[in-house]
Design a protein around this nucleic acid. Structure first.
Lengths: 200, 200
DNA sequence: ACCTGAACACCGTTCAAGT
DNA sequence: ACCTGAACACCGTTCAAGT
């Protein structure tokens, strides 16, 4: 498998990223941690941004590859969104790297993001069919749910959510609030035929 | 009024920020644009972050100070959220500065943010009373609406919303979608008594 | 009270060499 | 094919002076 200094560079950079944020990942520190000179990375990546993009691609691929237990459509959607903010809160720097603006075009990163997007649309479409999400373009509904989770996570990370420290607006609560309201709205516009799924 | 090089520094920094993002605002460039040495800013700000915080505070104050026309509660809420994303899309760097993580404590910035938060809660509470938003803690409902607008703006700025270029998920559309759904959900849980407000 | 010039430590990036 | 050392341009920040 060869020594694989390229993987070692990514690993070291990800470690520095988790430990001190994106400002802590410097080519000199990365090289030092791997035991290599500070410009050795240029033999494996075009520049620093390409290295960061490689971290983002690795992380995004892992997220998409992670197994999803089989649940009812609504539970699957809820868990997907909760997992999203849980991951964001645990790994702020990775979150910003993957879902922030991309300065470098990375085919793997784009592919992973597209796969995640496609899977979410499928989950949303299933939830729509089971009557817990309003009908309409599944992509549009997916964007709605995704935008809320993203905004809740981003505001929480920035410290702009719980204004009075009373825990008034936990990101997880906001996700449940949204899905509850959407289910209520869906039930209202549907011709009442029993009350939807009560499958446990 | 004195020459006011402090204000000139803020103005120049904001100009550089709009033009080339936060990475373009360098103390040397700021000083040069004002016609002063590159360490003159240290006579007015503790460091670079304090200068950026001053920009954020000025911007946040302007946002809160901006006049709000008098509308029906629902229209006021809708306009507030649309204005939020319009501003974010027009001034991405300012948006990230004001609503991103604060690295420096700025009393003015905190005060402006608190004022904006308080006003939004008032708008939300009025919308709740008029029956277009679900009842419950106004702060919680405000956070829901705010998180969606923030997430939609942030994803759009990062280029992660319109996946297929078909304009499937415009941030403004998502805001209207959310408020439409919330109104529907509210009408459903309310004892029907005519259909809510049709006040013009 | 405000500003300057030189200096320091730290970056990303390039390049001529080395194996 | 991969790596090194020196060098360059650019940062934020500090400090001894100047007025």
């Amino acid at each position: 498998m060869a020594p694989g200094t390229r993987d070692a560079l990514i690993e070291a950079a990800a470690d520095l990223l988790d430990r001190g944020g994106v400002e802590a990942v410097t080519l000199r520190a990365v090289g030092h941690q791997v035991g290599v000179s500070h410009n050795a990375p240029y033999k494996h990546f075009a520049n620093k941004e390409a290295l960061l993009a490689a971290i983002a691609a690795r992380e995004a691929t892992r997220l998409v590859t992670a197994p999803h237990g089989e649940d009812t459509p609504e539970a699957a959607l809820r868990r997907t969104m909760h997992d999203y903010v849980t991951w964001a809160l645990e790994h702020p720097a990775r979150f910003r790297l993957v879902f922030g603006p991309w300065t470098t075009e990375s085919p793997e990163l784009a592919a992973a993001a597209h796969a995640a997007h496609t899977r979410l649309i499928g989950t949303v479409a299933a939830a729509q069919r089971s009557g817990v999400l309003p009908t309409g373009d599944p992509e549009r509904a997916a964007s709605l749910v995704r935008a809320l989770a993203h905004g809740a996570a981003d505001l929480a990370l920035a410290g702009h959510l719980a204004a009075d420290g009373k825990g008034h607006a936990d990101p997880h609560q906001l996700i449940d609030d949204l899905l509850d309201h959407l289910r209520t709205a869906t039930a209202a516009t549907r011709p009442a035929h029993g009350g939807g799924q009560e499958g446990r």
